[in-house]
Amino acid sequence: MTIEGGSATDELVLVRKIEKFLIREVDLLDDRQFDDWINLFTEDGYYWAPASIDQRTPDAEVSLFFDDVPMMKTRFARLRHPRVHSQIPPSRTSHMLSNVCVSKKHGSELCSAEARFQMLEFRLGYDQRTFGGKYEYDLVLGPDDRIRIAVKKATILNCDDIHLPIAVPF
């Protein structure tokens, strides 16, 4: 945790605030509150899960996920469709995050955060899967105390594995 030019109390308050926000963010995925999850993102925000461990940009190579807000809406509208065959029955997930690090310049409304995570995923008929790795966030701290996500990047350890279908973001 580093806040340039801030006091120790500022640091503690901010870190706790960001942690609570990140816990809520992954909880929304596990609770399948996908519309609320989308609403955490800024209008031009995006969610990115690289397909190779050292992938620098989603613009020059394919990615596991690279969703802007309109794409998130299309993705989750499909998951609500009564005949989304590959999700009947649906996947259950359980996200955990830890090792949260926050860095912010004093006075700036922008803040970045990193965390380690694990996601368990189970769909009846298939083996339970474990995905895990690193989250990197670019966050915007609003004047009304509202935090929004400009970028969420989730790099899973086995991003270049040969995967069975994946429905819920890491």
């Binding site: 899960a49 397909a51 989603p58 613009d59 020059a60 190579e61 394919v62 990615s63 596991l64 996920f65 690279f66 794409m71 299309t74 993705r75 499909r78 989304v84 065959h85 590959s86 995967h163 069975l164 279908p165 994946i166 429905a167």
Partner: peptide, 23 residues
Amino acid sequence: RDQLVNLNRTHSPTSLVQTDDVE
């Protein structure tokens, strides 16, 4: 770039299309 973005949507493990084929 747009081509890659659309392949993510249609031809990846998280695709909105292929996943139902493999099902």
